[in-house]
Design a binder for these strands. Structure first.
Ligand SMILES: [Mn+2]
Ligand SMILES: [Mn+2]
Ligand SMILES: [Mn+2]
Ligand SMILES: [Mn+2]
Lengths: 219, 219
DNA sequence: ATTAAAATTTAGACAAATCTAAAAATATTA
DNA sequence: TAATATTTTTAGATTTGTCTAAATTTTAAT
């Protein structure tokens, strides 16, 4: 089966919202897609007819197994293109999302498998998010929030909560990007800020808000 | 201004038809786009409102200067993606057209300029067709039909009339691709077939129909 | 110059995706 | 539990792009 650009965007958004709450609401999806609740209801009916979601009027909805597989296919394409844009075309990672949002809808399966191979089968996109394989299997990376790290062991930045230019600008200033190794040195109870040390740089202090937007894993 | 996928496909098709006849007819465009004449008329009105064509009811139509520029932008994207698909992803050149037909509509200008640079500013696509530059300037390559070559000097294959898998298969068998150097040895008046010699291979005979689909330029 | 054929346009309909305003269902609060 | 607020759905409209069938215009043929 083949899905329209609009259908694909809905499917992907439902998938992402489900990571937070198992069953999704009409309003949250409308908000995510910057559209109106009435439009969401219309599309839900269509997705139900096409057997991609479980949906009961007024009760919320979720992707079924089939819908999940479709979603992971779209996410695979999105993240492979993002990797291409950053690592081959030299884009900054705050610029690639909007472009990948279009490229993800190009429908050739052969294209994506060849792109994957050309990129040497990357495991994560430029934001640290894992890339599903052809069968929709996605590595689960146990991520911890930097704000909650206590031990003074080496940790590695694996992804970020915000992909805004503002975030990127600040991370650059701190010499932090995906894959950067660092250590937590001290917590300040007063405002929740923490002192960290990035390898080869002098220690610095980041606010709690920044820390909460940085996800890490051990060694 | 931004144009829909449908509008872009119409604009590009009008451009291509204009290469043969300066002013285009409703039927020919409908045929090119595999749609119905009534649909073409509808779109023509829209393109006229958007000031992309000159159009007089029942009298045919053509792109104006603005429409021409838009068309060349789409063709630039199409051909750059085709080059990418063949030279980076390893597609055969009979497979790339349909995919480029989708990729050409991805709208980021930055994307295309970076792609161009990544590909080292190619001058022609995998079918030998010239790639317009950012400003819509396109090199004109004086092409001659192989069926009409008489002199026994070295000539270079610059493009092909058909991009079908059948054509590709046969050209491969003859060891001919874009850029191949060859010589015309003899014409057979009986059926119009000609004997050619591809460098490093023994001479062979190709039918008039094949020859008519091969375009060449001198040295 | 008529008439017949072909090309083109209009009229009216339809599917997809969206919207606003109103109605219905559910959740919250007093 | 009853009133109120919030969420969700329905009803009806709009835009884009397409279609068929009928009307109109142009072109070709007698
Ligand atoms: Mn998208
Ligand atoms: Mn990403
Ligand atoms: Mn296209
Ligand atoms: Mn081409």
């Amino acid at each position: 089966m083949n899905y329209s650009v609009s259908e694909e965007n809905y499917i992907k958004s439902i998938y992402h919202l489900q990571q937070q709450t198992d069953t999704v609401t009409t309003n949250s999806l409308a908000n995510e897609l910057r559209t109106k609740p009435a439009s969401v209801t219309d599309m839900l009916k269509k997705l139900q007819t096409k057997k991609l979601i479980e949906y009961e009027k007024y009760r919320g909805f979720k992707l079924n197994a089939n819908g999940n597989k479709i979603a992971l296919g779209i996410i695979r394409r999105h993240r492979l293109w993002e990797f291409f844009l950053v690592n081959k075309l030299g884009f900054e990672w705050d610029k690639v999302h909007v472009i990948a949002e279009e490229l993800e809808h190009v429908s050739s399966a052969d294209l994506i498998e060849r792109l994957d191979s050309f990129l040497k089968f990357p495991q994560t996109d430029p934001h640290g998010d894992p890339i599903p394989d052809t069968n929709g299997k996605m590595a689960f990376i146990k991520q911890l929030n930097l704000a909650e790290i206590i031990v003074k062991k080496n940790i590695v930045v694996s992804s970020v909560g915000s992909q805004s230019p503002e975030m990127l600008e600040m991370l650059k200033h701190y010499h932090i990007s995906i894959g950067t190794s660092l250590k937590v040195i001290k917590h300040f109870a007063f405002d929740g800020s923490i002192e960290i040390k990035v390898l080869q740089y002098t220690p610095c202090i980041i606010s709690e808000q920044v820390a909460k937007n940085i996800f890490v894993h051990h060694d």
